[in-house]
Design a protein around this nucleic acid. Structure first.
Lengths: 337, 337
DNA sequence: TACCGTTGCTCAATCGGTTGAGCAACGCTT
DNA sequence: AAGCGTTGCTCAACCGATTGAGCAACGGTA
C-alpha cells in the first residue's frame, strides 16, 4: 500500500526495492522481458512490488521516448448538430476500446481555429486524428502530411486524404422518393402541393450532395417545377423558422411536403409548427435528414434519415489500420426510418 | 516554411539556426526571457526563426519536466443521459478556453472501470479531473487525494471532496408543485386522478433527492395518498415504457399527472404514448426532469426541468480555482420550463 | 590595479521510460 | 585450457523542454 505516496512511484523506486535495474523493471512491466531474457522469477518479483506500490506508468515520459502519446485526436465543429455529439461519443468509446485516450477538440467552423486546434493536437503528439466538418480540408491535410500524422476526414471529405462520409446523395434521393410516395400527388400548377427542401449551407459538401440527391430524384419523378423548391437557409433553427414562415405565407398553406436538411433546422421547423393549427400540420409530409428519438413521436407525418456515426467511425478506424494515405472516399449508407 | 520537415522542429534546431542555445530559445518562447536577461534583439531573432520553422512545443517533454500536462480530465458514465452529453460539451469548451486540452473518458457505472479510468488519467498526469456520476465517490476521492490531484465531483456528490450538483430536491418540488397546479384536482378516492413519479434508480443520489422533493411537495399539498405513486423503475426507456403500460392498465386510464424522472425515461414514456389515442394523452399533465428542445413540441401538456450543466461546470472550475479541498456541496438551481 | 555589480548569455542536470549495446558467469565442446 | 554459445542481467544514451547555477565581458568605482 502506498502509505506515504509523496511522489508517484517510478521504475527507479521499484528497481531499488526489487534490487534490480530500471531497465529490468521497464521490460518486466511492458512484457518485453522474454525478448530481454529476464528470469520469470525476477519478473514476478518486480510485478509484485509494482502492484504493491500502485505503480502507473508516466505516459508523458513513455510518449516522449517513443514519440507517441496514446492519445487519439478528434476535431469537431461546435456541436451545432446532434450528429456530431453521437460521433464524438462513438469515437470516445472506440478509442478507449483500442487503448487510446480520446482528446476531443471543438474548433467551430473557422479555418484558423481549426488549424490551431490541429497544431495543438500535434503538440500533444496524438497518434492519429479524425477531422469532422473541416472548413478547409486541404490545409488541414497538408499539416497532417507534413507532420506524418495519420488522419481521416469524416463527414466533410478531403480530396487529398482518406475520407469517410455518409452517402448523403443516395439517402437524400431515397428520402425524397419516400416523401413523394407518401404525399398527395403534386399539382404542377399549385405550388402549395409541391415538395420543398429546407435548410443547409451550400458551402458544405453534405448539403451539396443532399441537394443533388433531392434534385435528381425530383427530376426523375418529374416533380421539380422551380428552383424555389430548394431553400438553403443555413443550419440555424431560427433561420429555418423564419424561412418556413415566409413559405407558409407565400403559399397560403403549408407545402405538400417538406424535406428538412438537418435536425437543427427541424427544431426550427417544429417551433414554427407549434403555432400552426394541428390539423394543418398533419396534411404535410415531413422528412428530416438526421434523427432524434423524440422526433418520432411528434404527431406529424415524418420520415427520418439516420446517419450511421458508428459505422463511419468504424470505417475511419479501418482506413487507419489499412494505412490509407492518399485521397479515397468511402460513402456509408444511411438508414431510412 | 518547413520545406522538408522530416522530424518536428525542436528548440535545438532553432538554437542552431539562431546561433544561440536551447535555454535561450526556451525562455524566449515562453516569455521568461526578461527574467533571464536576454536581449530583446536576440529574442526577436529566435521568435522569427521559430515562426518560420512552424515550431510547436512538444507538450510531452514540457509536461514531463514540469510534472503537468495541460490535460483536463472528465470521467463520465456512458452517456445514458443527454445531460451528460451537454456536460461533456460544456466541459470541453471551457477547458479549451482555459488553455487545457480536454480528455474525456466514458467509464460506465462500474466501480472498477471508473477506478481504472481515473488511474489512466493519472498516468497522463492530467492537471485536474471532474468526475460525474461516480458509483463509488469515496474510492475515487481517495485515489485523487493520494495523487494530490485536484478533483471536483459533479452530478453525484462525494462527502470527502468538493462537489457540484443540481439542486434536485428543490427542482423536483417546484416541478411537482407546478404539475399539481396544472392538473385537474386530485380525488383521494380515484387513483387515476393522482400524480405519479416514474423512473430513476434509488441508488443514485439524484433520484433520492428528486424523490425527496417530490414527496415533500406532495405531502405539503396533501396529495400523497400511497407509496405506489412513486415508481422507481430505473433509467432505461424500455423499463419506463413497460411501467407506464402497467400503470395504464391498472388505472384503466392514464394518470392525472406524471413526473418523469429523466429524459431517457421520458423517451420510453413517449414511445408508449404513441399507441394511446391522442385525445387521452392530452388529459395528463406531464413533467420531465431533464430537457430536450424537441420535446417542447410534442402536443402534450408538458413541463420540463433543465439542469444547468453550464453553470455546474463553471462552478466546478470555481471550486478548482479556489483550491477547494475537503467535502463541500454546492447545489446549482435548475430552470423550470 | 583590484574589486564589484550588471548584462547577456550558456551549461548541464532533470523529468521517467525505452532500448541497443555490452558484460559477467556458466556450461559445454574440442 | 582455450573457445563458444547461452543466460540473465546492467549501462547509458536518448526523447525535448525547463531551470538553477555559473561564467565572461564590460563599465564603473576605490
Amino acid at each position: 500500500m502506498p502509505l506515504k505516496a509523496r511522489r508517484k512511484t517510478t521504475i527507479y523506486n521499484i528497481a531499488q526495492k526489487a534490487r534490480s535495474s530500471p531497465s529490468a523493471v521497464s521490460s518486466a512491466l511492458n512484457g518485453t522481458w522474454k525478448k530481454r531474457r529476464l528470469k520469470e522469477e525476477t519478473v514476478e518479483r518486480i510485478l509484485r512490488i509494482a502492484r504493491e506500490e500502485g505503480y502507473t506508468a508516466n505516459l508523458q515520459a513513455r510518449g516522449l521516448r517513443k514519440a507517441k502519446s496514446g492519445l487519439a485526436g478528434l476535431i469537431l465543429p461546435n456541436h451545432e448538430n446532434r450528429f456530431f455529439a453521437e460521433l464524438s461519443e462513438t469515437f470516445a468509446l472506440e478509442s478507449q476500446a483500442r487503448g487510446h485516450c480520446p482528446a476531443i477538440v471543438h474548433a467551430g467552423r473557422d479555418v484558423e481555429v481549426q488549424l490551431q486546434a490541429l497544431r495543438d493536437l500535434l503538440s500533444y503528439a496524438v497518434d492519429f486524428v479524425f477531422i469532422a466538418g473541416a472548413t478547409d480540408p486541404d490545409g488541414l491535410a497538408r499539416l497532417c502530411r507534413d507532420a506524418h500524422l495519420p488522419h481521416v476526414f469524416v463527414d466533410q471529405p478531403c480530396a487529398q486524404a482518406p475520407s469517410v462520409v455518409a452517402d448523403n446523395r443516395a439517402a437524400a434521393a431515397a428520402l425524397t422518393e419516400t416523401l413523394l410516395e407518401d404525399m398527395a400527388p403534386s399539382d404542377p400548377d399549385d405550388p402549395g402541393s409541391w415538395l420543398y427542401l429546407l435548410g443547409g449551407e451550400e458551402t458544405s459538401s453534405a448539403t451539396v450532395e443532399r441537394v443533388r440527391g433531392f434534385r435528381a430524384q425530383m427530376q426523375a419523378s418529374g416533380f421539380l417545377y422551380s428552383e424555389d423548391q430548394i431553400i438553403a437557409c443555413g443550419y440555424d433553427p431560427v433561420r429555418a423558422t423564419d424561412a418556413l414562415g415566409r413559405l407558409h405565407r407565400d403559399l397560403g398553406r403549408l407545402p405538400g411536403g417538406l424535406f428538412v436538411n438537418s435536425i437543427d433546422c427541424f427544431e426550427g421547423v417544429v417551433r414554427y409548427l407549434a403555432q400552426v393549427p394541428e390539423a394543418e400540420t398533419k396534411r404535410t409530409q415531413f422528412g428530416c435528414f438526421d434523427h432524434d428519438p423524440l422526433a418520432t413521436l411528434l404527431r406529424v407525418p415524418l420520415r427520418m434519415v439516420r446517419q450511421r456515426s458508428d459505422v463511419m467511425i468504424a470505417e475511419a478506424f479501418r482506413q487507419l489500420d489499412a494505412g490509407a494515405q492518399g485521397g479515397s472516399l468511402l460513402q456509408v449508407p444511411c438508414e431510412l426510418l
